[in-house]
Amino acid sequence: MKTYSGPTAAVCKGVEDASGSKTLPTCERLQGALKNLSISRGSTVVVHALPATGSYTFLSLLLAEPSSKGIYSAVVGLDDYNFSLAAHLGVDLSKVITVDPKLKFSERELARAAFALLDGFGIVVISGRIASLNSPRFSAKARQKGATLVVIENSSSPKEISYRIKADLRLFVSRSPWTLSGSVSSGILAEGEIAVQAVERMEHHPGRRAS
């Protein structure tokens, strides 16, 4: 899969080596999309996407490199996330835990569990609905523990994109339309491109788009 970036922002000033302790390592395929941008540990990243427009593909790519570097991730509240896509895109699933999707829990219970997981996991991925229960507390704990909190905020239409969750970095993910591939042997669908547009949190101008 090719990735390209839209207007991106150098969110982390003085970006360090990805293997250093201040930023999350990212795979080559994501580095193209996240040019000049790195995701700091302890930050809250909100991934905005409309359904079926690349948020889970982006998430899989985001988890791939950290898992290969021995960083453990937890995915909570994304019952429809297909981990076989994650494995297909290079995520070492032995470094990932989740809550059994066959069991039903209230969002409040899942939020408590995710809050506990921030104590020991490098990346904690939660849904926007869980994060919205107490987003300042989640962000504060992620910052304190040095864990990266990734919030997948799905909206059914562009008008419904919500900014209720405070974020250090907002990523708007979109992808090129799917097309059928020529032959089934090479995969039934042709791999498209993912575009990531980043908006940083500004101290005095929240939500301002970076250029």
């Binding site: 937890a74 699933l93 989740t98 059994d100 069991l103 506990a116 104590d119």
Partner: peptide, 14 residues
């Protein structure tokens, strides 16, 4: 800790 909140065998590895 998460398992204590959600119950035995609720946290798993895919």
């Amino acid at each position: 800790k998460a398992e204590t909140i959600l119950g035995v065998n609720s946290v798993c590895v895919p």
